[in-house]
Design a protein around this nucleic acid. Sequence first.
DNA 1: CCGACCGCCTGCCTGC
DNA 2: TGCAGGCAGGCGGTCG
Length: 292
Amino acid sequence: MPELPEVETVRRGLEPAMEGERFVKVDVRRGDLRWPLPKDFAQRLKGKTVTGLGRRAKYLLADLSSGDVLVMHLGMSGSFHVFHEKGKHLGRYYHDRSKHVAHDHVVFHMSSGASVTFNDPRRFGSMKLVARDKLDAEPLLKGLGPEPLGNEFDAAMLARACHGKKTSLKAALLDQRVVAGLGNIYVCEALYCGRLSPKRQASTIAGRNGESNERAERLVEAIKAVLQAAIKAGGSSLRDHRQTDGDLGMFQHDFQVYDREGEPCRTPGCKGIVKRIVQNGRSTFYCPICQK
DNA sequence: CCGACCGCCTGCCTGC
DNA sequence: TGCAGGCAGGCGGTCG
């Protein structure tokens, strides 16, 4: 599931259970995530307080009283669940510390009384402890492009990042060095919203000498609008992904093109049919008529 | 340097 | 019903 809107939704869900709270106990049930958790992972968390919970692109960043930052990524299938009360949760999760379901790999028992479970079937997710004063040098974060919802992300910046790029606009927007936090779904949605073809060469969104960056402007506005709407809807829920409280995100109902192959284009007056193509080994959905 | 491709790992859906 | 094959929201590494 997790692209920027889902990670932001997770961050907001975890905040009340974790911010200002201490790790009372940390259970590592399976440490071989994307990279193996260090042996002393649980020990380095125990007794420390979460002083803040932030997000950079698709990474969650928990600031700890020890001076470390816990950097977490959900990969393709990772999710967090918060359990406040004893008993069943969605018929399969329990607050009881001895009971777990498949793929519950890490459990944080917080001083708030809540337990926070990291579940990840495919184990593409990751956790890493990094000293805060070395965060700038952290390879996972170092090459990331601008935050798409930040004020500094504008048409000029996007045009510059795409300058000279021979690759498709779709591939460029998926490149986290160009803009950080978009994934396959929101790239498709943003391109539709900005009426730009995913097949267009990335460099062509910039206006040539003197021309305005009209396409880049439109694309930046589309990216921001789609992400903001998705966050507002609590992210999207595909397969069995849910928010930290078990609720479903709602934005999947608002997809205009993603996974809508063969459906009529939703642009008023457009007679196009949503098409699926494969770019760089991944599905792209778009309207061949109104996305130019 | 850039861009295309592979692999990681599991679950689910489709078609035979 | 069973099984093989394809596909999935990400990203780091390698190769040309």
